[in-house]
Design a protein around this nucleic acid. Structure first.
Lengths: 135, 135
DNA sequence: TAAGGTATTCGACGGAGGTCGATCACCATG
DNA sequence: CATGGTGATCGACCTCCGTCGAATACCTTA
């Protein structure tokens, strides 16, 4: 699980917290990212094999970058599980996160992830419905 | 886990057991296949998330169809586990199997699986090495 | 400072799945 | 028929991981 300097790969200029120029907060310091290029195929497939995580990815692709906080997703799990899934997606290079105020905004790493695993995200985004299986 | 009539989708004419025209043996009757079109994305991703199964897929792609029996693969697991993995790949629509004599020959369902999950097999076949991580 | 909202962390639980040895079924030879 | 080879099945074990409640940390607003 490598961690990169993480240059600004965003397609849209990300919003900033009010206290812009100050030192990183402890919360932001704990936010470690992994670049898709450093992710194994095992980790990528495992991350996207979970239906809850695929729901997150699909909802995230439905809107602009940096507009969805973790709590705004419609998921059939509690806060703790939700937080776990976001961490897995982040460590698998699928999403990028940034703290703004008390919320944590998300972005789907479309171009970088596509470069590392061509077609994989498309497969997820073209999926009819999640797995649980009712119409 | 649907089971289809399974028409002959092979690219190469598959070999036949010596007793060609006879009734299906019990062994062949237990061999149930699932067409990739009937496989969920969850099952496809889960099947290919395992390093042992990806090794099978890659070895299978390295030679012609219907030339590799289950026992001819170089896998770090016992017979029982090996048999389990082949069953998972079969139920996920990744491979097709056919009994010839006392052996069970395999075929990678390249065109059908590609049609159902474009790019997914390519991702696996282009993977540098399996996950365990030593060169 | 207090209160409320957002999100992570911790510890525990339970189920799913990868693994194995042993056994069994089937096929092909002597 | 007996033997050996191939592969599936069974039962058990164990680890991983998805899940949760509770506690904690951080931010914002009053």
């Amino acid at each position: 699980m490598n961690v990169r300097p993480e240059p600004n790969t965003s397609s849209t200029p990300p919003p900033r917290a009010p206290d812009e120029g100050r030192a990183q907060s402890q919360r932001a310091r704990n936010l470690s990212h992994v670049h898709p290029a450093d992710v194994t195929l095992s980790d990528a497939l495992t991350a996207l094999a979970d239906p809850v995580r695929r729901t997150i990815v699909k909802e995230l692709a439905g809107g602009p970058d940096w507009t969805r906080a973790c709590g705004t997703f419609d998921l059939p799990v509690t806060k703790a599980t939700r937080s776990h899934h976001f961490a897995v997606l982040r460590q698998a290079g699928v999403i990028e996160q940034r703290d703004v105020g008390s919320r944590r905004l998300n972005r789907l790493r479309r171009p970088e992830f596509d470069a590392a695993f061509p077609g994989l995200l498309d497969l997820v985004l073209h999926e009819r419905r999640a797995s649980p299986g009712e119409s």
